[in-house]
Simulated assay, not measured.
Amino acid sequence: MGKDSKTKDSGGKGKGKQSSGGNDENTSKGKGKGGGKAADELGTCTYVKARHILCEKQGKINEAYKKLQDGWLSNGDKVPPAEFAKVAAEYSECPSGKKGGDLGWFPRGKMAGPFQDVAFSTSIGATSAPFKSTHGYHIILCEGRKN
């Protein structure tokens, strides 16, 4: 049982973003007990780097998500940041939309409710499904995490 978590961590502290070529979501799901370092890659990191698209209306966020699906999400949930930025610039109603939805690095506790939950649980390189917060409807692209 405890063996798996030790073999996953190959020595480097806090260097999760270099550890695997995008397979984080497959190896860290369902490993609640004794997951150690694997759990840190998703739910317990201290900072996350993200981009987002914010729309007031659900129809508009669904349109943006469909555009991502047609271009990238049909091949999995990985959207290159530059491509996500183009869709954010076109659809996002947040001032960050002009910067491709870039929110930079932010600590746990800075963002409210569902936004934080989704941002800190989305795998690096993955795009969330649309979700609702107190500010409207969002899609998040997680670009990195660190402690």
Rank of each mutant, 00 (worst) to 15 (best):
E143H: 09
T7F: 11
A50P: 04
G101R: 09
V118Q: 04
T122S: 14
T27W: 13
G22M: 12
V87G: 04
G2K: 10
G34C: 03
V118E: 02
G14A: 12
K13C: 02
G16A: 14
P80I: 04
L73H: 03
G32S: 13
I140T: 06
S20T: 11
D24L: 07
P81G: 03
G21I: 06
Y91R: 05
K13M: 08
E83I: 00
E56F: 04
T122E: 11
G109C: 08
D117T: 15
K99V: 01
K33Q: 11
L54K: 06
P80L: 05
D40K: 15
T7Q: 13
K132D: 09
E63M: 07
N26A: 14
N62A: 08
E90I: 09
S74L: 07
C55S: 08
S123V: 07
G97T: 07
G32M: 06
L54E: 02
L73V: 06
G113A: 15
S96L: 10
S20V: 03
E41W: 06
T127S: 15
L54F: 06
S128P: 04
F84S: 11
A89K: 15
I53T: 05
K146N: 03
K110D: 04
A88D: 04
G144W: 03
F120M: 10
T44E: 03
S123T: 08
R51Q: 14
A126S: 12
G43S: 10
S96V: 13
A39W: 01
E56A: 13
K60F: 03
I139S: 04
G2V: 09
G113R: 08
P80S: 10
R108E: 00
A50N: 08
G14L: 06
S74D: 11
E93V: 13
I61F: 06
G104N: 07
S128F: 07
S10I: 07
S5P: 04
K57Q: 14
G100K: 12
G144K: 02
I139F: 09
R108W: 02
T7E: 14
G43V: 08
G34T: 07
E25H: 09
K86F: 00
Y91I: 10
T134L: 13
E25F: 13
L103E: 11
G11M: 07
K17Q: 04
G125C: 01
E63K: 15
K67W: 01
S121D: 09
Y47K: 10
S133Y: 02
T27P: 00
G104R: 08
Q116F: 04
K37I: 01
N23H: 13
I140Y: 00
K29F: 12
W72Q: 11
D4P: 00
H138G: 00
V48F: 00
G36L: 01
A39T: 14
S133K: 00
G76W: 11
G12H: 03
A85R: 05
A129T: 09
D77H: 09
N147P: 12
Y65P: 04
R145T: 05
Q116W: 01
R51V: 00
W72L: 02
F131I: 00
G36D: 06
I140Q: 01
D9T: 01
G32D: 12
F115T: 04
K3Q: 10
Y65L: 00
T44A: 07
G59R: 07
T27S: 12
H52M: 09
D117Y: 13
L73K: 12
E25G: 01
G2T: 09
A64D: 03
R108I: 05
S5T: 12
K17F: 09
